[in-house]
Structures are given as C-alpha cells and as structure tokens.
Amino acid sequence: MKKYIYIIMLISVSCKAQYSLQNHDSAGDLPSGSYCADIFNDFNNYVGTWKAVQGNKELTFVLIKKTYVYYPFKDIYTDFLTGEYIYKEGNQTLIDTTPNFTSTDVRGNNINGNLFIKDNDYFPICDDCFPNERRIHLYFKDPTRTHVHAEIVLRHKVVNGVQLIKATLYETLSITEEGDNLPEHITVPVGEYTLIKQ
C-alpha cells in the first residue's frame, strides 16, 4: 500500500512541474506555467555587437538572448531578445544606453521583445524575404524621451560571408500636451539601417 501512495504522490508532483515547450510562432493562449521558447534558436542569430555607419552617423546595438524569463502578464515563461544601443553623430555621443545592461527586468532594457514576423506583406514589407522567413519585432525605447514610442524590426542576413542585420526603426506614438515643448521624435533618426556584426 505504501508503494502505491508513493507512486501517486510522485505522479502528482511531476504533473505540477511539467510545462509546455512551445515555439513563439504558436504562443497563443498557453496554460499557466508554460514555456514559450525560441526552439528554432532564431534569437541566436542576433546576439552580439552590431554597428551601422551612415555618413557621420553611427549606430551600435548590443543584443543578448535571455531564456526562461517569467512573463507575469500571461503567467508563462518565455525567451527574450534584449539589448542596448549607442548613437553618435560626428564624434559626439548623443545617447548611450549600454550602462542599463544591469537591469534585472528584461522589459527594462531599451531594446526588448520576443515577437516574430513571418508574413512578408506585414510592415515593413519584405520583397526579398524567403517564404516563412522569421524577422524579429522589438520595442525600442529612448529613456530621454519616454513620451515617444518606437519599434524596430530586425532581419538577419549573411552577405559574402559577412553577418548583418537589416533594421527598420519607426515611431508608433508620441504623447505630448500643448505647451510641453518636448521633442517630437526619439534621438535615433527613424529609418533603415544595415548593421554589421563586430
């Protein structure tokens, strides 16, 4: 009899510890405690330091992948791509968020997210994407202009053996009141950037 009780207890404990390993593509309504993982390791292509130089403008991203992060809004665990950035014009650094890497909250990083875009007709339209090619959609924050909301879409490519990211940065909302005299845009100019892995 003791043997049967032990087996029943073992089964009930193991059921509570189980989670559902899902890819982000199918991260709809998951049961509490599920793990929505980057099982195809798409985020790995973006990890590292990347730099774009366009005229006198220089934009650097430092991106990392964080795994098994608790997401309280849905009561699940998920993988995130997070990062920080530096933007310079001429020899002047206009913004450097890299000291913020000490943040323990992934949504506290100024680049963060875990969404994939597979539809080539979804903004920004990608005419040369392969069918079902995954691009990464992230939130992009300017800590000096929190009233302006921005997002960025990243596409990883290898051209002549060189790893690069095609990035489209765009603003989605600016919340100001008349007379605030706040800047209308984020510090980094919106547009397309080609960043090369360093």
Rank of each mutant, 00 (worst) to 15 (best):
M1N: 06
I5E: 03
Y6W: 06
M9Q: 13
I11G: 05
S14C: 12
L21C: 10
Q22N: 13
N23H: 09
G28W: 12
G28L: 04
G28M: 02
P31M: 00
S32H: 10
Y35C: 02
C36M: 15
F40V: 10
D42Y: 15
D42G: 14
N44G: 09
N45Y: 14
V47D: 13
W50D: 00
W50F: 11
W50I: 01
V53D: 10
Q54N: 15
N56T: 15
N56Y: 07
K57V: 05
F61V: 09
F61H: 10
V62F: 03
K65C: 00
T67S: 09
F73R: 09
D75Q: 14
I76N: 09
I76A: 00
D79R: 00
F80A: 09
Y85P: 07
E89T: 06
T93F: 04
I95V: 12
D96Q: 03
T97I: 08
T102F: 15
S103A: 14
T104P: 06
D105T: 11
V106G: 02
R107A: 14
G108I: 08
G108T: 05
N109A: 13
N110D: 15
N112R: 05
F116C: 03
I117D: 11
I117K: 11
K118I: 07
K118D: 04
D119N: 15
N120S: 12
N120D: 13
D121Y: 10
D121I: 10
D121V: 06
F123C: 03
F123L: 04
P124W: 09
C126N: 09
D128L: 11
F130P: 01
N132A: 01
N132I: 03
N132D: 11
E133R: 01
R135G: 02
F140L: 04
T144P: 00
T146F: 03
A150I: 03
V158Q: 09
V159L: 05
L164R: 08
K166P: 00
T168P: 05
L169K: 13
L169M: 15
L173H: 07
T176K: 14
T176A: 04
E178G: 08
G179R: 05
D180Y: 07
N181M: 03
P183N: 02
E184S: 14
H185C: 01
I186S: 05
I186C: 04
T187L: 04
V188M: 08
V188C: 06
V188Q: 10
V190Q: 06
G191V: 11
T194A: 06
L195H: 02
I196D: 03
Q198T: 11
